[in-house]
């Protein structure tokens, strides 16, 4: 179902949702949101379980690292205020602090994934152009660059090889191949823009794929942030 939502509406809904999550300090809300995100992903046709697992691993890792930081390096005032706030936290307030921090990160990540894994790049850009007034030039520049990704990474490898063959070893974060790449990108942007403009590209054009906004899109856009507010009220 999340696949079919208009990308602009989805962006706004999830963006506002994520900001609201920023002012949420209840682990229960965090967990529920993470679950909702997980549900979105499960029902999407654009991602598989296999793929999902590969993304979840690093997320759990980072989430764990936040847990330990929150637990071992908590701030005193925060614990104090939390102990007063949440009377239920009779157990270990430091542990709770860790749980809150790590579930918060988990929730952010699940919402994030349910955007990036379920949105088609062409649709997103078309929708931004049609609904969010993104300049035509910007939209198509993004699509063009995305479509050249594999060529760019090939070139990057080639420029590294070219250096090695000259007996100039390439270390990680070496700027030499990066410099060569920058030169190329300056040249490419020139050629590409000439090619596109000489094919008649400008702001005045039709678009074959029309992205529509339907009532359910609006419902998602407004409903999702409202749901977070609701959850917050419920648990506080």
């Amino acid at each position: 179902m999340i696949d079919a939502i208009n990308p602009t509406a989805k962006t706004i809904g999830l963006l506002v949702g994520s900001i609201l999550l920023g002012v949420t300090f209840q682990w229960q809300t965090n967990v529920l949101l993470a679950l909702i995100g997980f549900l979105f992903l499960l029902t999407s046709n654009r991602t598989s379980l296999n793929q999902l697992a590969r993304f979840l691993l690093p997320i759990l890792l980072i989430s764990a690292s936040y847990f330990f930081t929150g637990w071992l390096f908590h701030s005193e005032e925060n614990l104090l205020s939390m102990a007063v706030d949440t009377m239920t936290a009779a157990e270990n307030p430091a542990l709770l602090n860790g749980v809150t921090l790590s579930t918060r990160l988990l929730a952010f990540a699940m919402l994030g994934l349910s955007f990036s894994l379920t949105t088609d790049s062409n649709e997103l850009v078309y929708s931004f152009i049609q609904q969010a007034k993104m300049p035509m030039k910007m939209g198509y520049a993004i699509l063009t660059a995305l479509n050249l990704t594999s060529l760019i990474s090939q070139e990057y490898k080639k420029s590294k090889l070219a250096l090695q063959v000259r007996n100039l070893p390439v270390r990680p974060f070496d700027t030499k191949p990066l410099f060569t790449m920058m030169v190329r990108m300056v040249r490419w942007s020139d050629r590409l823009s000439l090619a596109m403009e000489s094919k008649g590209f400008s702001e005045q054009r039709t678009m074959k794929q029309q992205m529509k906004v339907r009532p359910q899109d609006i419902v998602f856009m407004i409903g999702f942030p409202l749901a977070i507010v609701g959850l917050n009220l419920l648990f506080s």
Binding site: Y140, L143, T144, N147, L151, W188, R191, L192, L194, A195, M196, S198, K199
Partner: peptide, 15 residues
Amino acid sequence: VRTIFQHARLSFSMK
């Protein structure tokens, strides 16, 4: 005028 450029790959912007 339509121009066909030498480096064909860099004249395409779509997939």
